[in-house]
Design a binder for these strands. Structure first.
Lengths: 329, 329
DNA sequence: TTGAAAGCGCTAACAT
DNA sequence: ATGTTAGCGCTTTCAA
């Protein structure tokens, strides 16, 4: 494994000159440049990022913090982050926290130890105080889920409005008994989506029935099934369900089918996210599309700006209601 | 940002001593150790991986090469790799190649440039010659998909046998007209699964009809739909379909439903992989379970051994046929 | 246009 | 048990 010294010797120049060629500085005469390039080729030399990174005090690595890689919601976001990062010479370290503060801390250490230059956090369970503290020293961007008002830039959508529109759609097609399948209200997005749900109901003069709001501990298929069981057992059974995640909605779909009822004739279902699978179910799922890929590229671009010392502002991206079979038999 | 020098000065010892404490060497007296620890705490010191990595000529990073992150098949493998890596002090760099040789090459550069210590490749499209060449110098393990006989250790399942059993199951429940939805035979697993399919048919004295074998360019839902369209158009329509990927099978399911036919009464469907979603469809999908998580941990353990200079052997893991609704109405 | 040399932060061989 | 020091491979300032 040749190093820069050997290249320099081979080319009969100094290491400084080799470095200049490596970094495309144009203060090198074309003759020397050629000599150096020949030496590089001859020795099969590859510059070591280890040396460069130490010297430059950077790792060129971006850390992505996600609670659970099993939720396909994150896939396109990751893609977006990766492609943007790549185009700027960064690579991504994917870190699954399982919403476990200990695991989170291991990953936070990576940035403390300079193994990563910054963090895109998508973890709602993240310890907000630690994150805030970290953000003083390191570049951090929140993506999709965010703690409001903690001074860390984020990219997300308007959850309240998205939720409002989804529920309004159900109202417009005639539903009056609409259940909300939400996650724990410790999450900001859960509170926002609940608010949107309530606003839509109120606006149409419909009563808020607390019994129509069920909560799940996790955004998963299984929890969607369980929650749907509860909804199906309700005394005055709803004719529509709005779930704050496609995974929950798909679980609901399954449970409704299993109970012998029909979607959307007996119960209409709306999901949230527009993951790939929302189009593969039977019936296909009406859902709120989040611009996942764009969220990823935006978050990455913001983070890289931040790493470079620029000021960055939070961004709210557009969402869109995708009407499919689960609300339009 | 304190460095080891400052800690040494603060503690009134040499940098060597600080380094010893950092690395848990027990040649340090407990008094000095305490002094050093206090200095570390006082200065809020975090050792830089940049310095350590250069010194140790390692990055402690493992590169994962996948063709496309959108196929959930890889999710559990990644989880397995990550957890094993983490337990050994490694982190993972997730790299999506899109089966694009140029992109592959960018990622290969990471190991050439010492940004990564080794590679777990799950990319069937990978340039075999380059991979072989790289494997001479760097630690590489193939996971799930592999090039046979190129001397790079792999971890996978017995695709031929798995395929044989899946088809045999269809035969045993009475099917005689069984289609194979396969991928391009340039992939070894495609050839193996075809072989298993053919062995099962032959063993039961059934004729091989080339028209019953359709090929897809990608393992995706959409390609599954398209392929199923072709199968449905066949003159003597099959009563069962064995798809070499759950994603394809789910596409087939959708297409069959759309055509007004019923699964499994009109057409039975078997998939491959046992991705999470194979249990969320309606009907649920009979499929061959691959031990994804285990494949991940195994591959990572093998790779880390290889990085440490040990010899490692290829591993064949067990598979299992999971019978669900799509073959047992 | 080029070179000499310092130094990024750490570890380990060697010395005491 | 502890310290001194070289050096991992690179970039960049300063000098020529």
């Amino acid at each position: 494994m040749a190093n820069i010294q050997q290249v320099a010797k081979q080319a009969g120049v100094s290491v400084a000159t080799v470095s200049r060629v490596l970094n495309g500085q144009n203060t090198v005469s074309s003759k020397t440049k050629t000599k150096v390039e020949e030496a590089i080729k001859f020795l099969n030399y590859e510059p070591s990022m280890l040396g460069r990174n130490l010297r430059n005090s950077e790792s060129r690595i971006i850390l992505i913090l996600i609670p659970n890689i099993s939720n396909p919601f994150y896939l396109d976001i990751i893609k977006g982050i990766e492609n943007m990062a790549l185009s700027q010479g960064y690579n991504i370290l994917l870190c699954e926290t399982d919403s476990n503060p200990d695991k989170e801390n291991i990953y936070f250490d990576l940035v403390r130890k300079k193994m990563a230059d910054g963090i895109v956090s998508m973890d709602p369970a993240v310890n907000v105080d630690t994150l805030k503290e970290l953000a003083k020293t390191y570049a951090i961007i929140q993506c999709s889920e965010y703690g409001g008002g903690i001074g860390i830039p984020y990219v997300t959508i308007d959850s309240e409005e998205a939720s409002y529109r989804a529920v309004k759609h159900l109202i417009q097609i005639g539903h009056t008994k609409i259940a909300l399948m939400n996650s724990d209200e410790k999450f900001l997005y859960a509170r926002e989506r609940k608010a949107g749900y309530q606003r839509a109901l109120k606006e149409h003069g419909m009563a808020l029935d607390n019994g129509y709001m069920v909560y799940t501990q996790e955004l998963s298929f299984e929890h969607g099934q369980q929650a749907m069981k509860k909804i199906l057992a309700l005394r005055d059974r709803p004719t529509a369900v709005f779930a704050v995640s496609d995974l929950l909605a798909i679980g609901a779909l399954k449970e409704i089918n299993a109970s012998g009822l029909h979607v959307p004739n007996d119960i209409a279902v709306v999901g949230f996210d527009k993951i790939d699978f929302s189009n593969m179910t039977n019936p296909t799922l009406t859902t709120v599309a989040q611009p996942m890929y764009k969220m990823g590229t935006t978050a990455a671009a913001m983070l890289i700006d931040k790493i470079k010392g620029k000021e960055v502002d939070s961004v709210i991206l557009d969402h869109e209601l995708i009407i499919r079979e689960s609300t339009s038999g």
